[in-house]
């Protein structure tokens, strides 16, 4: 037999770890995503003749903590019935003891992988949908804690899905210790899982984590923690700046009112941020409707320009009417 290349050995090592779905109603199709702890496969549900996404822990990360976390993630998703949150179909255990759950197969592109060809109003409308989804979760006592472009899927018709609720915090649930960070857990480089105790636990993604989250002040985490991350997403959508990309720099200068909204959403002190995702969404909606943004004090010229833009059609009609009247008068004089 010819020498097996390293990449083949690695591939075999990976596929031999892939879950054995015998005894379930699912057939494995292909790997469509992977993170620090688990894999997401496209699978066929033979009972219902439909494709689903199947999330399962990697074998190296299938300790009790991780399994409890995956079950918890499925429970969190199951209680959030919203068009912006993927629905869970089933939870189960494989023959080797690994926990899995299946969910609706989402077809779309991750926000951080989308081509940058949407107009600013279109990008802001996407943002509003993200805010509405996160606000819905907040209303049901769930704080996402890892809102970032990589966890947002955008469908072909502009529909938005907020994904990966694996480190979500349930308001009434006591904080459980997170999984260990060791060589075997192979956490993705942009995810951090540190600590064993309630206080001092850091979960999230640097660049999108609020200061209280980055410091592990678990008791201070609430809806405003997600508002901070939403502010980072707004900045990404408006300027193209993604703090997780090495050497990233803003590609566009933001309109000053939106820069002020981002600044307020990302205030270091939670008390100075918008109190909810809906409040933040309302500010962005104001900008879209050319109404004054509360976080920004505009000058007379800016106000005139904004009103000019807002009432552009009416102003044009009036000007056209006046021009016509003038023309009629001049014609009569002649």
């Amino acid at each position: 037999m010819n020498r097996l290349p390293d990449r083949t050995v690695e591939h075999l090592r990976r596929v031999s770890e892939w879950p054995d779905l015998s005894g379930t109603r699912y057939t494995l199709e292909e790997l469509i995503g992977q993170g620090g702890m688990g894999w997401v496969f496209r699978a066929a549900d033979r009972e219902l003749s439909r494709e689903v996404a199947l999330k399962v822990l990697r074998t190296g990360a299938s300790d009790q903590d991780s399994m409890a976390r995956l079950r918890r993630e499925a429970r969190v998703l199951a209680r959030l019935e919203h068009p912006g949150i993927v629905s869970v179909h089933d939870v189960g255990t494989l023959a080797d003891g690994r926990v899995f759950y299946t969910m609706k197969l989402v077809r779309g592109v991750r926000l951080d992988q989308e081509t940058d060809d949407r107009s600013l109003p279109d990008r802001l409308r996407l943002f509003l949908r993200i805010c509405e989804t996160v606000a819905f979760a907040h209303a049901h006592g769930v704080i996402h804690r890892d809102v970032k472009p990589g966890n947002i899927m955008v469908g072909p018709y502009g529909e938005v899905l907020v994904m990966d609720w694996g480190i979500a915090k349930l308001r009434e649930e006591p904080e459980s210790p997170p999984p260990r960070l060791d060589s075997e857990s192979q956490a993705a480089p942009d995810e951090i899982f540190i600590g064993q105790t309630v206080e001092g636990t850091i979960l999230g993604t640097p660049g999108y984590m609020a200061p209280e989250q980055a410091k592990g002040q678990v008791g201070l985490i609430d809806a405003r923690t997600d508002v901070y991350a939403l502010g980072a997403i707004l900045r990404y959508l408006v300027t193209g700046f993604d703090p997780t990309r090495p050497g990233a720099a803003p590609a566009r200068k933001p309109p000053p009112p939106l820069a002020a909204v981002v600044e307020r959403a990302q205030a270091l002190d939670p008390a100075r941020r918008y109190s909810s995702a809906l409040e933040l969404a309302d500010e962005v909606a104001r900008f879209l409707d050319a109404r004054p943004v509360l976080a920004y004090r505009e000058g007379p010229l800016e106000r005139a320009r904004r009103l000019g833009a807002k009432y552009q059609a009416a102003i044009l009609l009036i000007l056209a009417y006046l021009a016509m009247r003038l023309l009629v008068m001049v014609t009569r004089e002649l």
Binding site: S16, T59, S62, D96
Partner: peptide, 8 residues
Amino acid sequence: AKELLGVE
């Protein structure tokens, strides 16, 4: 086995 495949 754990080192090679990550399996218990």
